[in-house]
Every structure is written in structure tokens, then in C-alpha cells.
Simulated assay, not measured.
Amino acid sequence: MALFSSLTPVFLAVLCGVVVVFFIRSFQKKDRKSNAVVSKSTAKSRPWVDEDLQDTELNSRDEEEESEWAAGEEDVPHVPYAPARYAGDVMLNRAREFYALMNGRRSVRFISPEPVPREVIDYVIRTAGTSPSGAHTEPWTFVVVGDAEVKHKIREIVEEEEEINYRQRMGDKWVSDLRRMRTTWVKEYLDVAPYLILVFKQTHGIRSDGRKKTHYYSEISVSVACGILLAALNNVGLVTVTSTPLNCGPHLRLLLRRPANEKLLMLLPVGFPARDATVPDLTRKSLDDIMVYL
């Protein structure tokens, strides 16, 4: 009993400490849940807010040390802006010409091994880099692969996963729809095309001091850049086919030695069309089907 009595104060002190920590953590969790409830109730009261545009990448910061993230920078200076302005008839003519150019764009799976000037690719990527992005974070990395050995390794990774996708992961309807387009898991163009452009989205940036920089709406921003990239390729007479290789991202990221904050979004084989290239004879929706005037 004497030993027990001597330990009792120590035991009580430890117990009190545990209880205090428990209540502090419970309060913190309750506070976070309360904030989440407020956020959700606010969203419910604002039905015009598109839930698809909620920046889920920001929510992950709740679980990380705030010190890992860099604070905001100073205001960006503004400068005068006066782009070219055209007369109405010139505007219409330019619009028609650009539409005709882009309407001729097709997804091409038969690509020539003919070399493409590297400087052309440089300017195509520069053009994609003019894309707007959330808070001008420019959350994209364009990895251009011209090495034959690396291209072949990429093909092996993609075809291995794509065969599993076609045979197991994708539903019968998906496979049937792809069969109509004469598409299979065999991607010969990954070896043949002079360049492969792999587009990575940066889920967050990393400053020179190692702290993280928030990237807003990175996937939407990079998707817009991909659209501009496709237009830039078509503008110089090059072809591609948009590829989003399922389940290949982590393996390709390691192969290309990209950091963990980069996620593969799109893979584009780039080159001139093969002389015997064919494309599906498709029609596009009419203007009335894709536009609504209010």
C-alpha cells in the first residue's frame, strides 16, 4: 500500500495529462468538423457554386505542417495592355481561317518517323506555356522525349497496362466503342513518332527554400494548356493523338525522373502524318448542338 500510495500522485499526474491532450485533440477535431460543416452549409446556400471546381488540393493542407507552405508574395505590378484590334470584316475572315485550320485537325495514329526540327517543338511548347492558370502558378511540365530507347520503354509500360485495361478494367461498352475507332492496346506510334510529349500537372510548386507553393485548379489549368498545345501543333502541320494512359502515371514518372508533386495528365506522340495515314471519317456536331445564345 505504501508503494501504491507513493505512485498515486505520479499516476494521477500522467492521467490528467492524457485527459488534457485527449480533450485538446477532440476540440481540434470538432473545430475542423465545424468548419467543414459551415463550408458545406455555405456551399448548399450557394447553388451556383460548381462543386467540380472546388480545389480539393487545398484541402490536403489541413493534414500537413503549415510551415511547409510558403506565404503569398507581393502584389504583381500591372502594365498597359493594348492588343491588336481588327475591323469587323477582318475579324470575321480571321475567325473563318482559324476555324478552317482547326477543323482540319484529326487524331492521327499513323505517324512518320521523319525528323521534326527541335526549334519548332520549342516554340510549340512556348505557345502552350502562354496558357492562363490559377493565380498564374503555371502548374505544368512538358517532358519531350526524343531518345529511341526511352520511347521504347514508355511503349512497353503503356502497352502492358493498356492490355490489362482492355481485357479487365474497361467495360465491354468502352472496349466496343474503341473497336469502332480501330483502337487497341498496341501503340506502335510510341516508337515511331520522332517526339513524345508527356504533360505533367504540378499538384503544388516547390520554392528554392524547399517550401511548397499552392497551385490552384492545377488540372483545369493544365487541361487548358493542352488545348493550346494541340492548336499549336496543328498550326505547324504536325499531328498527334491525345492519350491518357490509365495506371501508367507513377511508372512513367519514375522512368522520366519527375518529382512526386508531378502527375501525368496526357501523353502525345508528335510528328508528321505517315504517307499512308488514315483517320476515322467523322462529323462534328453542328453549331446549334454546341452553342446556346441567351
Rank of each mutant, 00 (worst) to 15 (best):
E163W: 08
V116H: 02
V38H: 14
N103G: 10
E64V: 00
E159P: 04
V19G: 06
Y166S: 05
D147K: 04
K30W: 15
V239K: 06
L196W: 03
R207W: 03
G205A: 01
G129A: 15
G88N: 06
P259E: 07
S26A: 10
H78Q: 13
L233H: 01
H215Q: 06
S26L: 13
N261K: 04
L3A: 06
S223P: 06
M91R: 12
D289Q: 15
V79D: 04
I125E: 01
V186T: 10
E64A: 00
E159R: 00
S176Y: 10
H204C: 09
C16M: 13
P77S: 11
R126Q: 13
S45F: 11
R211Y: 04
L282M: 14
V143T: 10
A274Q: 02
S6V: 07
E163T: 03
V79N: 05
S67Y: 00
P117V: 00
N247Y: 15
V124K: 04
Y86Q: 10
P9R: 13
H152K: 12
L268H: 03
T214S: 12
D122F: 05
G249Q: 04
R94P: 04
A36P: 00
V18R: 13
L196E: 10
S133W: 12
F142R: 04
D209P: 02
V49Y: 14
R46F: 11
V14A: 04
M1E: 03
R167T: 03
M1V: 12
K263I: 09
K173I: 11
L255T: 00
N93E: 15
L198R: 09
M102W: 12
R257L: 01
R211D: 00
P259A: 06
V186M: 04
